[in-house]
């Protein structure tokens, strides 16, 4: 009697326990797999799912120091000590098909610690005439300081790494298109910009000291609302020393097109404003910053020519007479 009861209980335990054990084993194997491949999974969550996660640095990362982020109200600058990088000499592009083909170059160029590949499609630069090809081969280094909107600082715990990534990606695109290398000199919290319109934000940037940087970029959390219109054309002897970067919310690289657009405008390219124009529809970063991720990032020929001609000009070091106006 007792043995039959024991047998019954054992059968019941097996009947219920075996499936539960199998499910727990399946869940546990998932936990183990997720723990072993944390970096890849978190990178997938950040780049493809748009989740706000911090991707751990790989164990063999280069020793670029990442300072601790400052509290938002404190205007203490958090400087990122740059790793000395050699001046990059972009080699002339070989024969390339004129139709844009997506090219993603995973090699880090702006900062040694950025190894993430660009999550968007980048079109191959078109072949240039001989005179512009020579200009492309001239290396130009632009030292950049980035002021980050406090709202972005609050929303993204990895705002410094986020800024580093975007500047590095923008540098890759600019090196391929016009031979300009962006060197990040500092990432600071933008001291409480109280302004809500483009004009005020740009004017605030204009007053910020450059320190050792050539160009100061204001990384705003606001979505792109049109490029600021300059009241007059940039002088022929220097470029603008400040630019506002607006976001493309929902993109896998929300500020990449914005940085390219802002740097392009600072270097003298004209913002494209006609949505029906061919360069706009082709995905030139001087056009729509809100272009979908499916459209490859490219640069129209006219803007590229103008940027190649002006890239070697010095940057304005003091507030200028140019009064930006909101679009």
């Amino acid at each position: 009697m007792a043995s039959s009861r024991i047998k019954s209980l054992t059968k019941l335990a097996l009947l219920l326990g075996a499936p539960i054990a199998l499910l727990l084993a399946l869940f546990g194997s998932g936990v183990h797999c997720g723990h072993a491949n944390r970096a890849a999974i978190l990178g997938f969550e950040r780049d493809w799912l748009g989740m706000d996660v911090v991707v751990p640095e790989p164990p063999a990362a280069t020793p670029t120091p990442t300072p601790t982020p400052t509290p938002a109200p404190t205007p203490t600058p958090v400087a990122v000590s740059p790793t000395p990088t050699p001046v990059v000499s972009p080699t002339p592009t070989p024969v390339v098909s004129p139709t844009p083909t997506p090219v993603v170059d995973p090699a880090p160029v702006a900062l040694g610690s950025v190894r993430d590949p660009i999550p968007l499609t980048i079109a191959s630069p078109a072949l240039l005439p001989a005179d512009l090809q020579a200009r492309l081969a001239e290396p130009v280094r632009v030292r950049v300081t980035v002021l980050v909107d406090p709202e972005l600082v609050d929303r993204r715990p990895d705002w410094i790494a986020y800024t580093q990534r975007h500047v590095a990606w923008a540098s890759q695109v600019l090196e391929a298109q016009i031979g300009v290398h962006l060197e990040l000199r500092g990432v600071l919290v933008w001291p409480a910009p109280q302004h809500t319109n483009l004009t005020s934000l740009v004017a605030d940037l204009q007053q910020r000291p450059r320190d050792t940087a050539d160009l100061i970029l204001g990384l705003s959390s606001r979505g792109f609302a049109g490029a600021p219109i300059l009241s007059s054309e940039l002088p022929a002897d220097h470029n603008l020393g400040h630019a506002l970067v607006q976001a493309s919310p929902g993109s896998r690289a929300p500020h990449l097109r914005g940085i390219l657009h802002a740097v392009g405008q600072a270097l003298g390219a004209f913002a494209l404003r006609d949505p029906a124009s061919e360069p706009w529809r082709a995905g030139s970063f001087m056009g729509d910053v809100l272009a979908p991720d499916t459209l490859a990032i490219t640069l129209d020929d006219d803007s590229r020519k103008r940027l190649l001609e002006r890239k070697s000009l010095p940057f304005a070091a003091a507030p200028q007479d140019l009064e930006p106006q909101e679009h």
């Binding site: 869940f27 998932g30 944390r38 978190l42």
Partner: peptide, 26 residues
């Protein structure tokens, strides 16, 4: 879904007690 739930827990909560227990067993 059960497996992916485990992957999510393992990747996003590596220091939690679930991951600790699993790593102990493995």
């Amino acid at each position: 879904g059960i497996f992916l739930g485990g992957v999510y827990v393992g990747a996003n909560h590596p220091d939690g007690w679930i991951a600790s227990v699993v790593l102990l067993f493995t």
